[in-house]
């Protein structure tokens, strides 16, 4: 464990050092000025407001959108993944078709499509709702991620031996109960690394939501550059890169560690 942790830490600080090096190379003697700009704009980039007592977007919006999309994609992905293993060929083939359709849609295209497909105002039972850009972003990102999650679940379900289904059926369990009580609890540990990898990928994908008009970190970055000048564009984008890296790297590293642990456990019985 400790050796892997050392490697992970070297990787973590190594990448940060590289970003720092690029920063110094780009700004040379003006580095201090750039640092001051970043310090002044940090709260705006992180939480979308100038003081830390109110929240308007920024990197926090990316986190919120990613979590919301992940919840939606997980719920829909379980059902869809279950349907792709259904005994009924109609249900199964429809589900497989839907998965393939969703999985092969370019993320950016889906996001643009949501922009025009979902109206700004939605009237449900006479009540008018204003559909925020963030909500559209969540819907748009959920489309491809639902497909990935359903594949993760399908693979997990199929990793459990057929004998488990058979003995559960012989005990009188029905399909839904077998999935819930017997198959998923066994499949879940194996799915965790894939779920985490999918989430890291989704998180990186949140950088695309800028096209929906959400006040995510990238749109804030554009505003900052517009007001502080193009000279600081490199610094701002390096900072955004750093944020994404700090958030995603531990997830990716942990998922790899868990995967290895599971593989070892599998080998040793």
């Amino acid at each position: 464990m400790s050796r892997e942790l050392t490697h992970a830490l070297i990787g973590f600080f190594g990448v940060i050092a590289v970003l720092g090096g690029v920063f110094l190379a780009a700004y040379g003697g003006d580095s201090l000025d750039a640092v001051i700009v970043l310090t002044n704009r940090a709260s705006l980039l992180l939480i979308g407001s100038n003081s830390f007592d109110s929240v308007g977007g920024g990197f926090l919006a990316n986190i919120g959108i990613s979590l919301a999309s992940m919840v939606v994609a997980t719920v829909l992905g379980v059902s869809l993944g279950g349907a792709t293993t259904a005994p009924n060929p109609m249900v199964r083939n429809t589900a497989i078709l839907v998965v393939n359709l969703m999985r092969n849609s370019p993320w950016l295209v889906v996001l643009y499509a949501m922009l025009y497909l979902i109206p700004f105002r939605l009237s449900i039972f006479g009540t008018e709702y204003w559909v925020s850009p963030a909500a559209k972003a969540v819907v748009g990102l959920s489309v491809p991620v639902t497909a990935y999650m359903s594949e993760v679940f399908r693979a997990g379900i199929q990793s459990v031996p057929d004998g488990q289904w058979e003995s559960a059926r012989a005990l009188g369990y029905r399909r839904g109960a077998i999935l819930r009580r017997i198959i998923l609890p066994q499949a879940l540990p194996q799915m965790i690394p894939n779920i985490m990898t999918t989430y890291a990928m989704l998180f990186i994908g949140t950088s695309l939501v800028v096209v929906t008009g959400t006040k995510d970190v990238l749109s804030v970055a554009k505003t900052v550059i517009a007001s502080d000048g193009d000279d600081y564009a490199t610094a701002v984008y390096l900072f955004v890169l750093l944020l994404f890296f700090i958030y995603c790297y531990p997830i990716a590293t942990a998922s790899r560690a868990i995967e290895q642990k599971i593989r070892k456990a599998g080998l040793h019985g």
């Binding site: 031996p161 004998g163 488990q164 058979e166 003995s167 559960a168 012989a170 005990l171 017997i182 066994q186």
Partner: peptide, 10 residues
Amino acid sequence: SMVFQQYNLF
């Protein structure tokens, strides 16, 4: 009730 060759315990 049925018992299988591979036990198939959970």
